[in-house]
Design a protein around this nucleic acid. Structure first.
Lengths: 338, 338
DNA sequence: GCGTCGACTGTGACCGGTCCCAGTTGGAAC
DNA sequence: GTTCCAACTGGGACCGGTCACAGTCGACGC
């Protein structure tokens, strides 16, 4: 009856109710799971929805429920890492996939400048998103403090160093992983093993070094440690410094694949063959490890699981279910570089 | 007076109005530009906003205006390209930056399966986003058809082949670019030049080949053409086939940097040095070109401009301002590989 | 036969903005 | 002294859902 009334307006829940001969409340119940609705009514509503081509208006729903049905993928590293480090893309991909099933969406936020960070803080605290996947590794993270104090559901990647032990996190066994790789290098017979690790205010930088030191035991030589940012150029520069300082090193453990790639390039430039003259191992098993020349021996981080877990935990936290930090294992992937 | 009434509720426009001693209408006007508001009122409202800590509720605004203040970055390629091809990341980065100023947000959508595509279609047509940045190169794009017919403001990257001439696009001079690179190779004295190009249903695949053929003129040998998908392995496989078929080739023009990287690896595996034995040129100047060993000679696509332009155009289209397709120039970047 | 309970349904209030229209005011024009 | 207009203001209606609550109805127990 009232079905053909409004011509081009998008059908609302009222139109559906009219078409089905029930009330708005019943339609709403059907849409949200259909509990306490008689089979007849449910069928009538389903049919009416089909006939009218009804789609729920998410803005209206968000206004009424206070939920946005979206979560933020928040990058705190400077933006160039998004494309120079395949790691972020892997996490992004995993998060997208994990969210695709549930009908939620991912909003991408990049806090690469102070202004951007302030805007994002404002945006998130204004309730635009239901929660935040915080992708960061650095300790000095004012954003995290701010989010936590504002009560925004947040899940972190890596272990947030500092005061935030109570934030749910997904991380890997940094120390153990480093020990496994170090053991591998030792077992292969390398003797003068150097390490190129990340900044000390990142879990990767700190704990991988620690694991390395422990496993090396007496063989550990503080002179064979280089610490720098997680990018290619830094890896290359570190390798150059190492080879100048200690030309006799026969293996290098880089704390990320990207750094390892830089290290290999630098070694070659100085006339060393990899792995014949010097072995180079990486960390992450990001996309480039397998296709690099030579293919990189590396520690595989379970990216898909990490991001899936993060999403799952975040949804729990959003729904008020408390979650404990999760620590995942890594696996040694032996290829040709070490 | 009513200022301290509600305790922990987020302040609304009503609270601000009460605090400022004006009506909701006036507050709304101040928030939206402040036209037709007396200086006194404006000041009172600004002050009240500060005192109450008011933030506009975007859900409510969206419901009332029908605008979501967000746009979709829609990837139609299968998801692995997001991280294997740095190109996407470059566009994503540019779009994020361009949107950061305007207070709009980017929603990331990946249509990598049929189901995902159906969901996304539904989502976008439901008015969740104000417009779509469609990142795709393939001709057979049902999504584009669907978006256009649903009246969703859309801007495409690349030239959408097929029926969609009326969709605003941002692209580069494919043919000319290919000619410039070909000319460069010819000028360097290479004589047996092969091309590894992309699928024929992509503008890059088709028009770069065309430009190459034209510039080669009489020297063009259809036997030295390989066509495959834009990824590393495809590039490597194509190079392998080429070297088997025509061991005398002295240069290869790959239609993307990623393919070029694969081609270099394959050439090396077959004992050829690059560029001494065979030159390899790429296309895109994506991040990996400069850091590759050897650094790739390539055609630089102006990624930042492309994405900025796309955003700018999309916002115009959303506001009802018609836009014409834009074609940007590329530049030859000479490094060591060719 | 009455009370009770569980399943189901309808309705008004509400979420927090925007929009538009109907005023009010003060000053300039005639 | 009207008239008119521009500048400004207030408030009701509305956007399209959800939610709490009141109410209906049939079955069942005693």
């Amino acid at each position: 009856m009232a079905e053909n009334a409004a011509s081009h307006r998008r059908p609302t829940i009222r139109d559906v109710a009219a078409a089905a001969g029930v009330s708005r409340g019943t339609v709403s119940r059907v849409i949200n799971g259909g509990h306490w609705v008689s089979p007849d009514a449910r069928e009538a509503v389903d049919d009416a929805i089909r006939r009218t081509g009804y789609t729920t208006n998410h803005h209206a729903r968000s206004l009424a429920t206070g939920r946005s049905n979206s979560i933020a993928f928040l990058l705190t590293e400077s933006q160039h890492l998004l494309f120079s480090d395949p790691t972020f893309a892997l996490l992004l991909r995993g998060a997208t996939q994990a969210l695709a099933d549930r009908d939620m969406t991912l909003v991408l936020l990049v806090a690469d400048t102070e202004v951007a960070q302030a805007n994002i803080e404002h945006y998130v605290r204004a309730g635009h998103v239901d929660g935040v996947l915080l992708i960061s590794s650095h300790e000095s993270n004012t954003l995290l403090t701010s989010l936590v104090s504002a009560g925004v559901p947040t899940v972190c990647s890596g272990i947030p160093l500092g005061e935030h032990a109570y934030v749910p996190t997904v991380s890997v066994l940094e120390e153990d992983s480093a020990r496994v790789m170090t053991r591998h290098l030792l077992d292969r017979g390398y003797e003068r093993i150097a390490i190129i690790t990340g900044p000390n205010d990142t879990p990767g930088g700190r704990y991988r070094l620690e694991g390395f030191r422990e496993e090396m035991g007496d063989r550990f030589d503080p002179d064979l440690v280089e610490q720098d940012t997680y990018d290619r150029d830094a890896g290359a520069a570190a390798m150059t410094r190492l080879l100048e300082r200690a030309p006799d090193i026969d293996a290098v453990f880089a704390a990320s694949d990207v750094m390892a790639v830089g290290a290999v390039a630098a070694a070659r430039r100085l006339g060393r063959r990899v792995p014949e003259d010097i072995a180079v191992a990486g960390f992450d098993d990001s996309g480039l490890a397998a296709t690099h020349d030579p293919p990189l021996t590396t520690m595989r981080q379970p990216w898909a699981e990490i991001s899936a877990k993060m999403v799952e935990m975040l949804l729990d936290v959003i729904n008020g279910v408390p979650r404990q930090p999760v620590v995942l294992p890594t696996t040694l992937v032996i290829r040709e570089s070490a």
